[in-house]
């Protein structure tokens, strides 16, 4: 019970009860908020009513795998923008943040959302399309004690921060689409 509630209460990836999903064509490039495009690689399901500027995809359900696109984060925004988050929980992104700061901020944001024992590792420069961005790995556990892993690719470009985040339980699910996500990272292109 509480595990389910925790997932819902987190409000991170599943807001209203009446969410619908649309199919995503694996081979057609998708443009995210006019910022950048990616090629899905496989048949993801896209959440239609997100309550956020972000785009959310899943294959098996958001608690099992979630690919979240966070486009154009601006100064003053939380990294994870979601309607219903209280202002006192929002630790704002700042334009002068370095990649280390962004990774730290992601840890803080996930902590505020209720994940536990959150930490990042393997921070390194990485290509975001033609731009130079950065990437890092995440570990954490849910309030229910399920261990999770994640990876983030991000870039400060074009007047904002763009990021792509993949999160899934360590047991089976993270590995299931880890390579697919790498392919998606490699498929990033600036929006024309």
């Amino acid at each position: 019970m509480i595990k389910r509630l925790s997932a819902l209460a987190l409000g991170l990836f599943m807001l209203t009860a009446c969410v619908a999903y649309q199919a995503v064509d694996p081979n057609e490039a998708v443009t995210i908020s006019n910022r950048f495009s990616v090629t899905p690689q496989i048949a993801w399901a896209k959440q239609t009513a997100v309550g956020s500027k972000d785009t959310i995809w899943t294959v098996d359900g958001v608690e099992l795998n979630v690919l979240r696109f966070l486009p154009a984060i601006q100064e003053g925004d939380a990294l994870i923008r979601q309607s219903g988050r209280r202002s006192e929980d929002i630790v704002p992104y700042k334009d002068d943040m370095l990649p280390n700061d962004v990774a730290d901020l992601m840890v803080t944001d996930l902590t505020k959302l209720g994940y536990q024992a959150v930490s990042y590792s393997n921070l390194a420069p990485a290509s975001f399309g033609a731009d130079t961005g950065f990437r890092f790995d995440l570990v954490m556990s849910t309030p229910g004690g399920l261990n999770m892993q994640g990876k983030v690719l991000a870039a400060q470009r074009d007047g904002g921060l763009d990021a792509i985040m993949y999160l899934a339980p360590s047991e089976y699910y993270f590995g299931k689409y880890a390579q697919t996500v790498e392919q998606i990272f490699r498929s990033v292109k600036a929006a024309s």
Partner: peptide, 17 residues
């Protein structure tokens, strides 16, 4: 009952406040 989210892992809820 509904909102006390300790869960099987025991820890603080998303909404500590």
């Amino acid at each position: 009952f509904s909102l006390i989210a300790a869960g099987a892992g025991v820890g603080i809820a998303a909404d500590l406040a």
